[in-house]
Design a protein around this nucleic acid. Structure first.
Lengths: 243, 243
DNA sequence: CAGTGGTCTAGACCACCAG
DNA sequence: TGGTGGTCTAGACCACTGA
């Protein structure tokens, strides 16, 4: 049930166990959990350890607490996973489509002034510039240009870009991605987009400018994308911050 | 410095104090904070209490930790304000523009099947339907149709809509808005949008479909908007959920 | 009233990192 | 080696809730 001799933290084991109960449906939305003291008793651990597990689940939106009453299972915000920050690859998979790539250019360049400013580096710092067409089920869906800090993301290869960049960053480089900001607008397709995506000039496209940051707050990528309007919708969920 | 007799939790007082140091510039991005043990000593509190304060600041993105090294100030995320879910009114103010309204119609109707499904009500439940043009600095910026559950949002008036709906819900009705989902796409303007916004048919517009939920998980509004592409960008920040 | 979560204490041992 | 954050304990008192 709980392995105290395991190198895996106890609070994490408890977390996983409660999550499993929710995912398996044994705990449903609105259900009241056993009290923290009961858990402490049951697992023979300190109540603070139980609290740490529950705190994390509350922060992740799986549970919520009510003073004097108890801890409850939150309503299924149903694609919780889908709605965080996702890479194109993850996004497409979540939509049930097969993601693909057609890389036009992959270069290691010196940052110009604009890029340097955006990525918080100095001019002539090394930057990967990748141009590619994104595919969904083998159909073009977006034209994309990425600028990636080579100081932060080392030894990037074309192969890593063919797979998932975020996966490479998190699994291979062992860095943690924190968040990204995105500016989304509608615009008429220019010559370049029209040609790349096989549409007429002036057709509406969805333009997205994404900047992504690592845990220490440093921006590691800037991506400009142009999505086919009739094949792609951007989906976001946003929390109301009470402050 | 710290008031132990205050009803305000100690960890919260410490939080505010560190935040103030960051905001005043006395602690800059990348600076190393005093260790948790030093803080505990200084404030004559337990280390766990200090940790609770720092945990919260880490979760909010003000600080980050490095094992064996210390706790550091994160880089300024200066869109912090724009972070959460905002109403049009709040959004415009944050951009330094004056929000405005031109209400075309304001009606209390019975939900049809589509609306009932979207708002999780039954057919013939009462729904407010509001059509209006949104203004920024007195210039049209979007055409918007809102459907608002009259069961949840009671006694809605045209005046409340002229002000901020979210403000009315939170301050007057004392309800808590939890989150919303938004679908964003580019599309050519139809006849209606073209006329209302004073643009040519076929011009790219940014279409947004928003559904918003109260804390108990009930949807209270569905809003369809068409924004002028050259006057509006949608800005979102998304967290990477580490799962 | 008894039970809940919210806060807090004063210790402890560990893995990790720098000098 | 000494300092850091990461985890954990076994208690404690509080305010709030429902019966």
């Amino acid at each position: 049930m709980i392995d105290k001799s395991s190198p895996i933290p106890i609070y994490y084991q408890i977390e996983e166990q409660i999550k499993a109960l929710i995912e398996s449906g044994k705990l449903k939305s609105g259900d009241c959990l056993p009290s923290e003291r009961e858990y402490a008793e049951k697992f023979k651990v300190s109540r603070m350890t139980v609290r740490q597990a529950i705190n994390n689940l509350v922060n992740d939106g799986f549970l919520y607490r009510e003073k004097g009453k108890g801890t409850f299972v939150a309503q299924k915000k149903f694609e919780q996973v889908l709605h965080g920050l996702t890479s194109f690859t993850e996004d497409m998979k979540a939509r049930g489509l097969t993601p693909g790539n057609r890389i036009f250019s992959f270069e290691l360049l010196f940052a110009n002034e604009l890029i340097a400013k955006q990525l918080d580096m100095t001019v002539r710092d090394p930057v990967y510039q990748i141009e590619r067409i994104r595919l969904a089920d083998n159909e073009p869906i977006a034209l994309e240009t990425s600028f990636i800090s080579a100081n932060l993301i080392k030894d990037l290869t074309k192969e890593a870009m063919h797979q998932s960049l975020y996966n490479y960053i998190e699994e291979e480089l062992n860095l943690r991605i924190d968040y990204s900001t995105q500016e989304i607008e509608a615009a008429p397709a220019g010559d370049k987009e029209a040609e790349a995506l096989g549409i007429k000039k002036g057709t509406p496209i969805l333009k997205i400018l994404r900047k992504s940051y690592l845990e220490d707050g440093k921006p590691f990528e800037m991506v400009k994308s142009a999505y086919l309007a009739d094949r792609y919708k951007f989906i976001a969920t946003m929390k109301r911050s009470t402050k």
